[in-house]
């Protein structure tokens, strides 16, 4: 059950999207999200949807993974759709149910909003599904490196992020183990009042924290014994380098944003 969490999961592959420079993907994601919020009409949404679908097909990541990732957001999606459906005023009401009046504009708005959130989330998934955590933090570090000038510890921050991502599955596994061990001693997590259930978490959380600290300690010693001392003068095995294909992606991003802006002007 705990193992089903897909947070930060990476699907190894060699597709076009996998091979892109992580910085390109990060920048494109930001541009994509901005463009998504510039969209106003059907046509521009179709452009965005086409872009995203093409990228997903190119990535060869199973479509199922994207929808599985959307599941935890189901509540937010439904909530947004319902709000937009009922609280958008238009000219001619479609029908009235008690104090609620639904306009055709409301339906359109609800659908578009739903589309917008789904595309936003799925685009982010596409990034984490096709980029290994190491490449991702490398890219982030490289993009944020100008901030070193104002004494921001960019390398340390990205290293912390990398380690955190790396340890998510380990901690999930550890939690599973501790839960089983306490269940073997008769602990009961499934029945009882809310307070009893919260109390039942103590035998899991304390060992989990202790083991997390122990792991952190061990990792720190392992890093120090391999002479890690932060980002200064640290070289990389895999240097990030923009290739021809990255240029095409940037060109496409520019065309996409320009297109969406034009469409917005024309009211589409």
């Amino acid at each position: 059950m705990l193992k089903d969490i897909t947070l930060g999961q990476y699907f190894p592959g060699k597709s076009l999207i996998h091979r892109l420079d992580p910085r390109t993907k990060l920048i494109f994601l930001v541009v994509f999200i901005v463009a998504l919020f510039l969209c106003s009409g059907w046509v521009s949404y179709c452009v965005m949807l086409f872009t995203l679908s093409a990228a997903i097909v190119l990535s060869r990541v199973p479509l199922k993974a994207f929808f599985k990732g959307l599941k935890p957001l189901l509540f937010i999606l439904v909530f947004t759709a319902v709000l937009n459906l009922f609280f958008t005023a238009g000219e001619k009401p479609l029908f009235t149910l008690g104090f609620i009046t639904v306009y055709p504009e409301g339906i359109i708005r609800a659908v578009l909003m739903l589309l917008r959130i789904m595309m936003l989330v799925m685009a982010t998934f596409l990034l984490t599904y096709t980029t290994s955590p190491i490449a991702l933090t490398d890219g982030l570090e490289s993009l944020l490196s100008p901030l070193k000038k104002i004494k921001l510890p960019v390398h340390e921050l990205s290293m912390m992020m990398c380690i955190a991502l790396r340890f998510i599955p380990t901690l999930i596994e550890e939690t599973d183990k501790i839960m089983s061990a306490q269940k073997a001693r008769g602990a009961d997590f499934e029945t009882g009042s809310l307070i009893q259930r919260v109390k039942a978490l103590v035998p899991i959380l304390i060992p989990l924290f202790i083991s997390a600290f122990r792991r952190a300690d061990e990792l720190a010693i392992a890093m120090e014994s391999r002479c890690y001392q932060g980002g200064d003068g640290r070289s990389k095995m895999k240097l990030l380098r923009f290739k021809g294909i990255d240029l095409y992606v940037f060109a496409f991003a520019a065309v996409m944003v320009a297109g969406v802006c034009l469409l917005k002007n024309w009211g589409l």
Binding site: K177, S180, A181, A184, R185, P203, P207, S211
Partner: peptide, 13 residues
């Protein structure tokens, strides 16, 4: 049926 896991000391709390 009592079960003692591997490295059971990690379950102390």
């Amino acid at each position: 049926v009592g079960l003692v896991f591997q490295y059971p000391e990690y379950q102390l709390f």
